[in-house]
Amino acid sequence: MSNRHVKVAVIQAAPILFDKQSAMDKIASMTREAAGQGANLIVFPEVFLPGYPRGLSFGTRVGSRNADGRKDWERYWASSIDIPGAETGILGELAKELGVYLVIGVVERDREFSTGTLYNSMVYIGPDGALLGKHHKLVPTGAERLFWGQGDGSTLTVIDTPFGRIGGLICWENYMPLARMAMYAQGIDIYLAPTADARDTWQATIRHIACEGRCFVISCNQFATKASYPTDLACYEDIKDDADMLSRGGSAIVGPLGEYVVEPLENQEGILIATLDLSQVVQSRFDFDVTGHYSRPDVFQLIVNDKKQEVVRTVGIQN
């Protein structure tokens, strides 16, 4: 790694769903493999720890929930993590040992907000083992609203590194133009877009973001099959008759003019490796700078509320 170049790794894989240890073991092994190939920045998919519950209903219909679904939900809650917590401590030790930046999608029990709500989060860990920040997904997509809460503007995180500023949004947050603009305004150079969307239309999205933000885009998805699902889940019946491949992947790396640095990887587990030349970011903004000469603040302005939203605030009352 130099100040203008960084080798990045994109992990396309899936753990055993609801199995925290499976996810931690896979993170450790694949991080070591990527670091062994010289990667300095290693990115894991959306909610890799402890997995994306694609196809599961948690026993829910409009107007009702059943007892078995609640038990599956409790199992998901138990396999989620605290930030900071025991798991981020272990991941910090791993990052420090290997001298890498780690960015991992996790399901988080954020006890600052609630003891019952889970959040779809992205956690950033530095090569010194320090917890650098996190991001809560602002709007869970579709049925995801059943099991994840909404984030707020306090975690629109961008991290300074020796090779540039990194940050990002999760899955369909990337369809929110104002959220993207909030990230661009922080001078993002490497934009992370972990996702659970394996459709062809997602590729158009990440290439557009690269052109719009004049930044590198790292898109990271899981490759998942039914073999990664515990068959003793009450709601396993929801996917029993589905095709064996539940997510084909589609992870890719895109350059700041919208071209693929690494083409999408599909239908298999794997690691994408690329060396990014950050001087290309500066060069790409010569003719289009979304927060500079193309911003027109005399016509358009965006207000971002970056304050943590609190349900209860205690204030002193003076006599």
Score class of each variant (00 low, 15 high):
Ala274Tyr: 02
Ala204Trp: 07
Ala234Trp: 12
Ala143Asp: 11
Gly142Leu: 04
Asp242Met: 14
Thr291Gln: 07
Val261Leu: 03
Asn267Pro: 01
Glu173Phe: 09
Asn40Thr: 13
Leu49Arg: 10
Asp232Cys: 06
Leu56Trp: 04
Val8Ser: 09
Leu276Trp: 07
Lys134Thr: 06
Ile104Val: 15
Phe223Val: 07
Val106Met: 11
Ile253Lys: 10
Asp110Trp: 08
Ile273Phe: 08
Pro45Thr: 09
Tyr229Cys: 07
Thr31Asp: 04
Leu118Ile: 11
Asp110Ile: 05
Val100Thr: 10
Gly142Asn: 08
Glu144Leu: 00
Phe48Tyr: 06
Gln222Pro: 02
Ser64Trp: 07
Thr60Val: 10
Tyr52Ser: 04
Ile317Gly: 04
Ile170Cys: 06
Leu233Cys: 03
Ser228Gln: 15
Pro15Met: 10
Val262Lys: 15
Ala179Arg: 03
Gly167Asn: 07
Lys307Phe: 14
Ala179Thr: 11
Glu263His: 06
Trp77Leu: 13
Ala35Glu: 09
Val47Thr: 10
Glu87Thr: 13
Ser284Val: 03
Ala78Leu: 10
Tyr236Gly: 02
Gln283Met: 15
Asn319Trp: 14
Ile104Thr: 14
Tyr52Gly: 00
Ala86Gly: 06
Phe300Trp: 04
His135Leu: 05
Tyr52Met: 04
Thr205Glu: 12
Phe163Thr: 10
Glu263Leu: 10
Ala67Ser: 14
Gly255Lys: 01
Glu97Arg: 08
Asp306Phe: 08
Val8Met: 08
Ala28Phe: 10
Lys26Asp: 13
Arg296Pro: 00
Glu259Gly: 07
Tyr191Val: 05
Val299Ala: 13
Leu257Gly: 10
Pro140Asn: 12
Val106Glu: 06
His136Trp: 14
Asp232Tyr: 09
Asn40Arg: 14
Gly292Ser: 06
Thr161Val: 05
Val311Glu: 15
Pro256Phe: 02
Thr157Ala: 12
Asp200Ala: 14
Tyr184Asn: 12
Gly63Ser: 03
Gly92Met: 12
Val312Glu: 13
Ser279Pro: 00
Asp128Ala: 13
Leu49Cys: 09
Thr31Ile: 08
Arg199Gln: 08
Arg61Tyr: 13
Asp128Met: 07
Leu272Val: 02
Arg207Asn: 06
Glu212Asn: 11
Val290Lys: 12
Thr291Ser: 11
Pro84Gln: 07
Ser219Asp: 13
Arg207Gly: 05
Asp82His: 14
Val290His: 08
Gly89Cys: 05
Leu246Pro: 01
Thr141Trp: 06
Ser284Phe: 00
Gly129Phe: 01
Ile27Val: 15
Pro15Ile: 02
Gly149Thr: 04
Met122Trp: 10
Gly149Asn: 09
Phe286Glu: 15
Asn120Pro: 00
Leu94Gly: 10
Asn40His: 12
Ala28Ile: 10
Leu138Ser: 13
Leu98His: 03
Asp197Asn: 15
Gly316Val: 12
Leu156Gly: 02
Asn305Cys: 03
Thr201Gln: 15
Ile81Tyr: 05
Phe286Met: 07
Ala182Asn: 03
Asp238Ile: 01
Val282Phe: 13
Arg61Gln: 15
Ala13Leu: 02
Gly51Thr: 01
Leu94Ala: 11
Glu212Gln: 11
Pro177Leu: 08
Thr141Tyr: 15
Ala210His: 00
Ser284Glu: 01
Leu146Ile: 06
Arg70Ala: 14
Thr205Ile: 13
Ile239Met: 06
Gly59Asn: 10
Asn66Val: 06
Tyr260Arg: 09
